[in-house]
Write a protein that binds this DNA or RNA. Sequence first.
DNA 1: GTGAAAGCGCTAACAG
DNA 2: CTGTTAGCGCTTTCAC
Lengths: 366, 366
Amino acid sequence: MSPVITIKDVAREAGCGIATVSRVLNKSGAASAETRERVLDAATRLGFSFNELGRSLQSQRTRTIGCLVPSLVNPVFAEAVQDLQKEALGAGFQVLLACSNYDPALEADALRMLLAKRVDGIVLTLSSSAGNPALEHLRGQGLPLCMLYNSPVEGVPSAYVDNRRAAAQVAAEFARLGHRRVAFLALRFGASDRSHERYEGFRDGCLAAGLEAPELIEVDEAIRFEDVKLAQRLKGPGALTGVFASNDYLALSVIGALHDLGLSVPGDVSVVGFDGIDMGLAIRPRLATVVTDAREMGRSAAQTLIGMIDAQGAATDQPQNSQKSPQKTPSPELPGMAFSFRRAESLGPARGGGTDDGQAATSPPS
Amino acid sequence: MSPVITIKDVAREAGCGIATVSRVLNKSGAASAETRERVLDAATRLGFSFNELGRSLQSQRTRTIGCLVPSLVNPVFAEAVQDLQKEALGAGFQVLLACSNYDPALEADALRMLLAKRVDGIVLTLSSSAGNPALEHLRGQGLPLCMLYNSPVEGVPSAYVDNRRAAAQVAAEFARLGHRRVAFLALRFGASDRSHERYEGFRDGCLAAGLEAPELIEVDEAIRFEDVKLAQRLKGPGALTGVFASNDYLALSVIGALHDLGLSVPGDVSVVGFDGIDMGLAIRPRLATVVTDAREMGRSAAQTLIGMIDAQGAATDQPQNSQKSPQKTPSPELPGMAFSFRRAESLGPARGGGTDDGQAATSPPS
DNA sequence: GTGAAAGCGCTAACAG
DNA sequence: CTGTTAGCGCTTTCAC
């Protein structure tokens, strides 16, 4: 409707050139107090605000960071993204968000679009990072990158937790409470590095603790309460006494399903999750789980990425003694983030087993 | 790193003008098979892709829609946004997301930024929509708008549910089961239209059913289990027998808290939520609640908005007989979305009360 | 101090 | 069919 005000309109209104308007409004370059006044006045009177497209096209910077996550429905990502965004806004960056829905094709599409929109950098969670072609493409662009939740790949920093180590600790907890037959429940085992790592860590931990290798049970989307495969393994002779779900959301579903099967948690079966979402504390029994700090993860990724962007900008600004300096600001090496195991009611002694007890075991930042 | 390829590079490589490259790559305008070949070849060889900034600046369209929600941590918004995005992508639109964290100042900021980035339209959830200055500003811009979860305001379509009607139904359910003293638990009562509407509908419903007006209990962030005010009202003489939480997330927390107070749900107290998030079905007792379809909400908002954008574009394209046509494509009137009441275990007969029973009551789309 | 002018990458007339 | 040209809104030399 209202015919969109441009810097030109402001210049005309203020009776000066557009360059002056730009200088005043951007506080770059000087201007007489009187001119400044006229410009400021004209700008507010017209309700002017910069068109970021023109600005970005000219400056080659968008002050926007791209963010790609598999899903927003998993609270872990919702929280991470939320704080990532808060952090970015604080530093003057916008966030362009995309969800891949765990689909590598969509991942590639989204990344392409993020590039086309010329974001200044990208924070991303990939189904599979090692040797991912889309990732390689991005690196080839020399675009600042920071991974989120993915284990770090050569040269790309990442805000992550050591899935293997954390999962191994879960195994130890099961062992401590006398469990002998446990299983790993995976949601998208084939399409998630993280799920894989957790399984491997858990398996290794089980073996190290003298347990049998855990069964690997794959389920799709939400667990169906009538899931035969699972039900079989939970009742009857030689039944499992413990289940480690690849994430909290899944764990919560399992607890509900067990209830429906007439099994009690942790009386009949213990359940442990991974992530530490709030909901795990809201229900009873509370969910035992590996607690990670999703918000901190998002914040950390944002800080790291913005640091890289700033460094890159600074490097371009002052070519200093740069003969042909590789231009490659070394990626900061983010340490793995802290996590802790939360002993809660959903994890109890195995039927007919059991040992000591305790409160909480926290692991140092790596 | 790699020096960013532009259309000019492709033109040089293909030995033709940039206009030809544009035509070929955009499939606008003709080109000899041979030229096309050379261009296509050069483009792929160079790994070219359009810079959307230049494109948008020129075309005055970004093929991007802005989306503003209060938070991503509430699964309702996460789901709505996720499907909103899916729908948008399908129609060739990107989504620029912003979270206001229920802060009107941030809402305004975010909206400003969305405008500056020249999004083609905006889907938004506001704390308070009636007479919201930021909203007025947007409308003044003539930018396509669609609200999400907010009750529709004059002239702005909205994907929403009738909070009052839904809440009144909750009151009826309580009454049906013999409850006499119930309360409404609100999370950010002062900063949410929706919370208000739900309270009012609930209160009216209670009065209509012959119950006392419900107590209004405000809690902040997550409910603290030791919350004195709440605990008092739940135990002892004249205690409440039912609680209606302003959303599911809160309801789930309450159930956990009640557990800790040694109260059983629904034995001692019944709890009802609002939204119908998945988690409500994963726990036991299952959460009785007003089920809304968040995903459909997001999809619907996207469709409506994109419809408006297309209409606007079409109107500008063919001024047909437009003398001075008000240019204002009439906003589609989205009907309130369907919701249904889910009778689940968390809602039972009042202590010492109770009547009949049933399965589920579904309300038509309005 | 301030304005004119070039140009960021692209599209859309308008000539050939 | 295809190249030239003129901007889209803005920042940034570079003279005045």
